[in-house]
């Protein structure tokens, strides 16, 4: 991608319909700015997967305002996607951190992704709890992922070097 500074910063309602609305909106926005169509599509995929996780695993019981925070921004030759949502306890957040640590044990995101596909095939996990989305972000999105938990909020951030 070319090098530009841009920012999208939204408090998003945790309705599933917003996943594709935002994925396509982000794709359309960055496509209007950058010439790298494949890079824009990857950024959109990363956004979609992170938003899906926020809605699926966020704790929406605590407040009436069921929103998570989405930021998508570019600085120089890096693009970032950050999603922050409330969580109930540390269980899901710890699973995210565990998955990120697991990925780092592999020589490449591709190796980790293929291992996760085999794990999905073999495991008896309930659908939707495989963490395949996070590993897909790292592989297909060519991203570095970080996560932090603070004051009942989980923030996952993906960085793409373009």
């Amino acid at each position: 991608m070319d090098s530009f500074n841009f920012s999208i910063d939204l408090p998003v309602r945790s309705d599933w319909a917003n996943v594709d609305l935002l994925r396509t909106s982000v794709q359309n926005c960055v496509t209007a700015v950058f010439s790298d169509i494949e890079g824009c599509r990857a950024l959109a995929m990363v956004t979609g997967e992170l938003i899906e996780n926020a809605i699926k695993y966020g704790d929406w019981s605590r407040t009436e305002d069921h929103r998570f925070h989405l930021r998508v921004w570019g600085e120089g030759r890096s693009a970032h996607v950050s999603v922050e949502n409330p969580v109930n306890g540390d269980a899901h957040a710890e699973e995210v951190l565990e998955t990120l640590g697991w990925m780092r044990r592999y020589a490449s995101p591709g190796d980790a992704y293929r291992a996760k596909l085999l794990e999905v095939a073999a495991a008896a996990r309930e659908p939707g709890n495989s963490k395949l989305g996070l590993v897909r972000i790292a592989y297909e999105g060519n991203c570095t992922l970080t996560a932090e938990i603070a004051r009942g909020m989980l923030r996952i951030q993906a960085e793409l070097t373009v």
Binding site: R23, M45, E49, E52, L117, V120, A121, P127, S130
Partner: peptide
Amino acid sequence: EHFNSSTITSIIQLIQ
């Protein structure tokens, strides 16, 4: 145009 990771899981099940 696009599939999410949950769809990939369904495709894996079909493969099996």
